[in-house]
Design a protein around this nucleic acid. Structure first.
Length: 937
RNA sequence: GCUGAAGUGGUGGAAUUGGUAGACACGUUGGACUUAAAAUCCAAUGUCCAUUAGGACGUACGGGUUCAAGUCCCGUCUUCAGUACCA
């Protein structure tokens, strides 16, 4: 009976689906364990072999944990709102919901073939109204909250109103907009409803604000910082410009410090934590206020080096700074205007590409040094970024290289305030190893002391204070797109109003086209039925808008990260229609124990999800403030492209070894045509594409050998390998084993289909081990010692491997075990039965099949992982006495697979042992089979 | 520039964390079986010297610590990833 993997796999996949084998219960005697994958965006291209890598790893771990007696939650779903479906809709008119549905069906089919132990009864789709009802609800919760810096948590907005009516806003220490004016309790009660709403909006955790945004004209939308790569849009690579728009924003900056602190409590990869730390960008320093001479205006700057304040010889404002137009003198106006205009025109990309050119213009205005009262010239320069700090710097050329270069370039003074330091060539940025000089009260002080003293003196003057600045900006939450969550928001007299949970979800309206309108409004501006009747509480036709009872609805939609910021919690109670999830469910599952996914989400999804989790924690919705205890980034699987060499100007192809004799062009060809020896059959190439029909060949040793290149798996390189094909040809178990066998989970590694025969042969050998010819061959024979040694060594190794997530080495361990047991002619059930449980997480289908042949009625997933019994590994005790010439000379720890005989043989065989042992007791003996390597001590 | 990770056969990668370097697999070569192919099985496979026995050298490069270094320390080089005028 041969190993018929296609039949076996189809049989068990149907069995698992039918019996609901992997359905998790929300209560159990067993301890819980939650294993999660980052849910996929269902793209039209389907899965390639790189996509399931992380899913296979998490599936192995989930199945392992079930064997270890845990109640395992292992769900899957789809991040199904997004740009590609919308782009496709714009081009074809096809509704994105239809495209998305088709893509999901295709994904599901592909996923099912690999034999994952997902609990599909909990499936979520972010584009499903049943799901985005709760996305809208969380948005409303954010709207109804503010951040209290005294208690370090988000609180209900009604508590804030209470505070305002009792004591105004002067004592409230909230994270809020900067343009807050103070008011008393009396003022508050005198405010109109609209005025109150306007004030509260400045405090809410999600708020409307005129913000300068990254506008991408080609995509017709706003992009978040993490959606921009090298100054162009991540998707499409289109240029991005700065533009002011009224947008919803999320006050994530309120959580900057807690997002940093939380990193210490979670087991995530260090590089990922580092990039979040950099992204949040905490820096300690001081804010300093400079008065502008002959103006009412002041310039606030942030500096990390208040100790160098006496080294200030000029100030620089970002060209976009609001004071520029106010303070520029008439003489300088023309030059300044020209410069401002020039920088605005320059795209972000140009500005980044050229960081070396120094440019700037003097405004003609002067600020006053807070201590010396000397005039400080005010310049503008594009090396100062409007988006960081206050968009203005106090320039200390002797201590900062950029200020130094600027000063040199424009011939500005470079006063030296460092003791015994030469600054004739470059700035001195080293904080330590010097003392401050020429600085009045700071003279002779070292960095730390000087910082403290300078802040103290600034505070005395009322012109500065210690400050912690974060690079993290509030996150823009509006997108001018169709295929996203609609906001549950309508506008009365220009003020946003939330729609009550009772009437959610507010579903996406139908539109004729998915493009922005001619007047530049988002696609929802095309909807005819998109107004809110506040009496009937339903969406009605725009024609009915009367601004008394029927109002316009928000036209923007939410960004891609909205749904992915809490979906992991929704899985816990995915069908709940009353609540986002029940408190019972969330208190039982609490958080994700193991989260596996790509590192590209470091500063996007993973930061936003942590932010929402902390918010929901503050509001008592979730019991823990970090959503994932442990996270692993799986490495990308790369493609191994195949290259043929065409003699330039001809249609003749030469084998790789001959290419240097000619002037050749390289052409990528479909990797699936190439065999394990890099050989390509000329016939296959001729049949592949019409351009090769008449191809001629020059072979080496009768073969056409292709060149290889490792690069990202992509259609354009013809190096995409599809998992369905692999499953058909070798089976899902082979695919699963091979993906693990390729190398360490976290590492990037190239795919090469040829190598899969190794693991495939292993499965065939495994099958044979349980069979005797055509008969099932497992017996009740008593296992011999060697059998047990092999089994227990394998248990120990595999368990260690899984706990350490080194899945690649356990595949080798299985191969060794099966080879050994085959050589030992083992057919003992006592060995072969537990061995199946070990292999089952990796190759579940074959394990189920053999398990049922052993007479089990239940799925192997209910079996418990075998215990490792040390006694079969070593003869007696760990400290084993070694006798020599009839006398016990020393005891030693035995290597795992060595017995007493091995050691004694080694000792006897070692010529020098007698001399070495004469008169001393060795501390340690290094022994390998048949040989003593060294005696120490 | 900064931060992080890593350099081991023809290839992917092992190495109980300081103890036989190259497990396991691919590929290659030879052999068995077969009319043939596929499949399967057996053997060899780091480099160099030697007919053999055996020996020398070997984990990017140069030093060091140690009875013992791929592993620890110092210096150099290279590659990959992330980030970038952050005041």
């Amino acid at each position: 009976m041969s190993y018929d993997f296609n039949t076996i796999e189809a049989k068990w996949q149907a069995y698992w689906a039918d019996k609901g084998t992997f359905k998790a219960e929300n209560n159990s005697e067993k301890p819980k364990y939650y294993v999660l994958d980052m849910f996929p965006y269902p793209s039209g291209a389907g899965l390639h072999v790189g996509h399931p890598l992380g899913y296979i790893a998490s599936d192995i771990y989930a199945r392992y944990k079930r064997h270890k007696g845990f109640n395992v939650l292992h769900p899957q779903g789809y991040d199904s709102f997004g740009l590609p479906a919308e782009q496709y809709a714009i081009q074809t008119g096809q509704h994105p919901a239809i495209t998305t549905k088709e893509n999901i069906a295709r994904y599901r089919e592909q996923l099912d073939k690999i034999g994952f132990s997902f609990d599909w009864s909990r499936e979520v789709k972010t584009s499903d109204p049943k799901f985005y009802k709760w996305t809208q609800w969380i948005f409303i919760e954010l709207f109804n909250s503010w951040y209290d810096q005294d208690t370090h948590k988000a609180r209900s907005i009604s508590e804030l109103e209470e505070l305002f009516s009792q004591e105004g806003n002067t004592k409230v220490n909230a994270v809020c907009d900067e343009d807050i004016t103070e008011f008393t309790a009396a003022d508050w009660s005198a405010f109109s409803v609209k005025e109150k709403q306007a004030v509260l909006l400045k405090y809410r955790l999600t708020y409307l604000a005129e913000t300068e945004v990254n506008w991408c004209p080609q995509l017709g939308t706003v992009l978040a910082n993490d959606e921009i790569v090298n100054g162009v849009s991540e998707r499409g690579g289109y240029p991005v410009i700065r533009k002011k728009m009224t947008q919803w924003s999320m006050r994530i900056s309120a959580y900057a410090q807690r997002l940093l602190d939380g990193l210490h409590t979670i087991d995530w990869p260090q590089p990922l934590k580092d990039s979040q730390t950099n992204w949040i960008g905490r820096s300690e320093g001081a804010s300093v206020t400079f008065n502008v001479k002959d103006h009412e205006a002041v310039i606030d700057v942030f500096t990390t080096r208040p100790d160098t304040i006496f080294g200030v010889s000029f100030m620089t404002l970002a060209p976009e700074h609001e004071l520029v137009s106010k303070i520029t003198t008439p003489e300088q106006k023309a030059e300044v205007d020209a410069y401002v205009e020039a920088t605005a025109k320059r795209s972000e990309r140009d500005r980044m590409a050229d960081v070396k050119t120094i440019s700037g213009v003097f405004t003609g205005a002067y600020a006053e040094h807070p201590f010396t009262k000397e005039p400080v010239p005010i310049w503008i320069g594009d090396y100062v970024l409007a988006g960081y700090g206050t968009g203005a710097v106090m320039a200390v050329p002797c201590g900062d290289q950029r200020d130094y270069d600027f000063a040199k370039h424009f011939g500005i003074d470079i006063p030296n305030i460092f003791e015994g330091v030469d600054i004739s060539e470059e700035a001195f940025a080293d904080k330590d190893n010097t003392m401050i000089a020429n600085s009045d009260f700071l003279n002779g002080l070292k960095y730390k002391k000087a910082v403290k003293t300078s802040i103290y003196e600034l505070e005395k003057l009322g012109q500065g204070k210690g400050k912690i600045n974060y690079r993290l900006r509030d996150a823009v939450f509006s997108r001018q797109r169709y295929w996203g969550e609609p906001f549950p928001v309508y506008y009365v007299d220009g003020m946003p109003q939330m729609i009550d949970l009772k009437y959610l979800p507010i579903q996406l309206p139908e539109v004729e086209k998915y493009l922005p309108t001619e007047t530049g409004e988002p696609p929802l501006g095309r909807a005819d039925i998109w107004a809110w009747d506040a009496t009937k509480n339903e969406v009605v036709s725009n024609d009915l808008i009367d601004h008394a009872t029927v109002f316009p609805l928000e036209l923007n939609t939410m960004p891609g990260w909205a749904g992915s910021s809490y979906y992991f919690n929704r899985y816990m109670d995915a069908d709940n229609e009353e609540e986002v999830f029940s408190q019972d469910a969330i208190k039982y599952w609490k958080e994700v124990d193991l989260y596996i996914g790509g590192s590209e989400h470091a500063t996007g999804h993973l930061l936003y999800a942590r932010f929402w989790q902390k918010f929901l924690f503050d509001r008592g919705v979730v019991p823990v403030d970090e959503f994932a205890k442990k996270l692993i980034n799986q490495g990308m699987i790369l493609g191994t492209s195949a290259i043929v060499y065409r003699i330039s100007g001809s249609n003749k192809y030469v084998s790789k070894g001959l290419k240097d004799q000619y002037d050749v062009e390289e052409l990528r060809v479909d990797v699936n045509m190439v065999n394990a020896s890099d050989e390509l059959l000329p016939e296959d190439l001729k049949n592949w594409q019409p351009q090769f029909e008449d191809a001629e060949f020059e072979l080496e040793n009768g073969k056409l050998i292709v060149g290889r290149e490792v690069e990202k798996m992509s259609k354009r390189w013809f190096n995409v390998v599809n998992p369905d094909g692999i499953c058909e040809q070798y089976g899902a178990d082979s695919l699963r084993l091979y993906e693990m066998f390729l190398g360490p989970l976290e590492q990037a590694k190239p795919w090469n289909t040829a190598g899969i025969t190794g693991v495939h042969n292993f499965l065939k050998k495994l099958w044979k081990l349980y069979h005797n010819g055509d008969e099932f061959g497992v017996t009740d024979a008593v296992p011999i010692k060697e059998n047990l040694k092999t089994l227990h060594k394998t248990i120990k190794k595999v368990e260690e491997d899984i706990e350490n997530f080194s899945f690649n080495t356990s595949v080798s361990t299985f191969m060794i075990a099966v080879n050994e047991l085959t050589a030992q002619k083992c057919n003992a059930k006592a060995v072969l039965e537990p061995l199946l449980v070990l292999i089952s997480p990796y190759a579940p289908h074959i394990a189920e099949e053999l398990w049922s042949k052993l007479g089990h009625q239940e799925s192997i997933s209910t079996a418990s992982f075998p215990e490792f019994e040390e006694k079969y590994l070593v003869e007696s005790t760990k400290q084993y006495p070694i006798s020599f010439n009839g006398k016990t000379r020393f005891t030693m720890e035995l290597p795992l697979d060595l017995g007493k005989e091995d050691i004694e043989a080694a000792v006897m065989a070692h010529e020098k042992t007698q001399q070495q042992l004469a008169g001393r007791t060795p501390k340690k003996v290094i022994v390998v089979p048949g040989k003593i390597i060294n005696i120490v001590g």
